[in-house]
Design a protein around this nucleic acid. Sequence first.
DNA 1: AGCCTAACCGGACTTGAGTCCGCTTGTCTA
DNA 2: TAGACAAGCGGACTCAAGTCCGGTTAGGCT
Lengths: 202, 202
Amino acid sequence: MNDELLQVLRRPPQERADAARNRTRLLEAAARLFAEGGVEALTVDAAARAAGVGKGTVFRRFGDKSGLVAALLDQRERELQEAIIFGEPPLGPGAPARERALAFFDAYLGYLADHLDLVRLSETAAPGARFRIGAYAFWHRHLAILCAHRPDPDHLAHLLLGTVAADLNAELLRQGLGWDRIRAGVASTVDALVGPSSPEAP
Amino acid sequence: MNDELLQVLRRPPQERADAARNRTRLLEAAARLFAEGGVEALTVDAAARAAGVGKGTVFRRFGDKSGLVAALLDQRERELQEAIIFGEPPLGPGAPARERALAFFDAYLGYLADHLDLVRLSETAAPGARFRIGAYAFWHRHLAILCAHRPDPDHLAHLLLGTVAADLNAELLRQGLGWDRIRAGVASTVDALVGPSSPEAP
DNA sequence: AGCCTAACCGGACTTGAGTCCGCTTGTCTA
DNA sequence: TAGACAAGCGGACTCAAGTCCGGTTAGGCT
């Protein structure tokens, strides 16, 4: 499937040339700021200044700080999403629900470990921000489908995603748990909750 | 057991008279502001002004906004904590771990439903605030003890508490789930995770 | 090519959390 | 009762997110 096509599907209303240029500049500037000074250096003012645009532009383009950071993570998220839709089992279609769920959480924890600070920033920038990020809805739907055989898939999917909340996992690391222990705990939890799956899944 | 004694145990270094008076004034003012204008009216500046103290005093007394709000909730939390330590089973000691855990989450969801806005405010005032609130450590230890028969009680207790995070449940309500559905989902999740318990618990 | 307008731009402004530090006061001791 | 000093006080200050609005411009249309 064509990258360009996917991109178009994702952003239907075409953007004016200057707007697109500023989006790119902002993302580059934000990435640079983060690379150089970590999460603390990544303020909206600094990103706007470094990109040579006004602050208002950032908010028009990305909604809020959380949206700017989410856009930075977009590429990696998209890779995971595509692996889920089009990839090989067990992450992609074809494996039993339980295996797919386990594969998803394993992959997601890899993503989280690689980008914990940014994910945390985008999830905690404002109350409820986590649930407004586009990707959250995707993960949620995916899991709800995998839990279709359980009583309340919608709710259960939210609870499952709670296990990989960035703020929680940052705290677990701070308390000295390592990623191995986190992985094991999440796996066993997912296993218990998704439970014995029907032989095949969508 | 004597209330005063409990209080002393909880706050060993005695407070200067003016400090105690200002604490009371601040809590009263904050409660009033919240009662009148909801969560939006409850800013640190407003509370300080209404209490007739300086802003610095609020931060010295309560650490941050999250701490001020947590102090407002302290009374209700303490009731629940005492019921867990000294109360009747299944909430108090004597019932099997699974029943105690279920009773805890049922009681906690009642508390959460009554005070959702305040709990959410105190949990989301800053990244990681949730885990710094004194009560969180209490709930966590309680659950970890109840999960002692499972592989990683410490981690599991954190994941269980994730199901009652205020921000998540506020979102669930916003999406149209009711408390009944939330209760049922949490109960079935806790049941699956705490699992068949050893016959008695501490 | 020239016009029209919706979209975009940017930076000053508002708001609220959290810090700082010189001044004040409660409390303990003699 | 008086003196010493740790604890407490408060409000001006800093810092960052998010809003607003008058001016500008890309790009479609004629």
